[in-house]
């Protein structure tokens, strides 16, 4: 497609975004092939506890003698999958609610936006804790909880875009032709409303990873899978004697989230028509 090439040329202009993308690809690669190259079960107690990084344990071992590197690599899978799936679900739901509210306006808009506001007013992390606590903590419930607290911002944004577009002449022309609402929403307006949504949902992946880490840190995540937040939680008790145990996964979260944010910024610059030069 011709659009993709132009898009890449614009994206490339932002150096920080390109660096972010490189880091992000590295994290994704580590998540995919890392556990294959370093085939150690992160729950196996394979050495003395609380070891400093060494030739045998590249990043040391935790309080139970588990390999931190293995945990980091397996945790990358969990963090990325939870982050991406939660964002996709939240984006899809937010798009649906926002599009319907923005396009139809009136009473439909009122009802949908009051629901959205309800979710927006509750601190999202607290809400996520409540949802996970009610249901059994598992990958599915954690992902659902994060999606449930993330969609309102997408809905708000999409609603604004749809309100801005719905009375444009090209939409009126479609109505004058007798086009069905569903087609106007999906085929005509949605592609025009999508660019800012892509930016927001890419940034949402970072927030979702942080939320998941927070939940695991508090022990509110799936006990059967390892994740970065869980690793920090494990290291918390020995923070004063073995700081690296928390610092390593902590820095990994920081770097990943930062990379996603840089990519999001780059997407924003590349997709924002106001910044495009003629």
């Amino acid at each position: 497609m011709m659009g993709l090439l132009v898009f890449w040329r614009r994206f490339r202009r932002n150096r920080a975004a390109v660096a972010g993308l490189a880091v992000l690809l590295l994290v994704v690669a580590a998540a995919i092939i890392g556990p294959v190259l370093h085939p150690i079960d992160p729950f196996d107690m394979i050495g003395r506890p609380t070891q400093l990084p060494s030739a045998r344990f590249l990043l040391g071992t935790d309080v139970s003698g588990r390999d931190i590197l293995a945990g980091l690599l397996h945790g990358a899978r969990v963090s990325l999958v939870v982050g991406i799936v939660a964002s996709l679900v939240a984006t899809a739901f937010g798009l649906l609610v926002g599009a319907v509210a923005g396009y139809y306006g009136g009473a439909v808009d009122n009802v949908l936006m009051r629901c959205t506001d309800f979710f927006l007013t509750i601190p999202s992390f607290v809400l996520a804790i409540v949802i996970v606590a009610i249901f059994q903590p598992s990958i599915v419930t954690v992902t659902s909880a994060i999606a449930a607290v993330s969609w309102p911002s997408v809905a708000r944004l999409v609603r604004g875009e749809f309100i801005a577009q719905r009375d444009r002449d090209y939409v009126r022309a479609c109505r004058a032709l007798g086009m069905k609402d569903r087609e106007i929403i999906l085929r005509q307006i949605l592609p025009n409303a999508l660019p800012p949504v892509i930016v927001v949902s890419s940034l949402m992946v970072a927030t979702a990873i942080l939320t998941e880490s927070g939940l695991s840190f508090l022990g509110l995540s799936d006990p059967d899978v390892i994740s970065w937040g869980y690793q920090i939680g494990v290291g918390r008790t020995v923070l004063r004697v073995a700081w690296w145990m928390s610092a390593i996964p902590g820095i990994t979260i920081l770097v990943t989230v930062l990379a996603i944010n840089l990519v999001g910024e780059g997407l924003n610059d590349a997709l924002n028509p106001r910044l495009q030069q003629r």
Partner: peptide, 12 residues
């Protein structure tokens, strides 16, 4: 319509 810049969908 009056404005041919607004009356065509830019992405189609």
């Amino acid at each position: 319509f009056q404005d041919p810049y607004a009356s065509l969908n830019p992405r189609r």
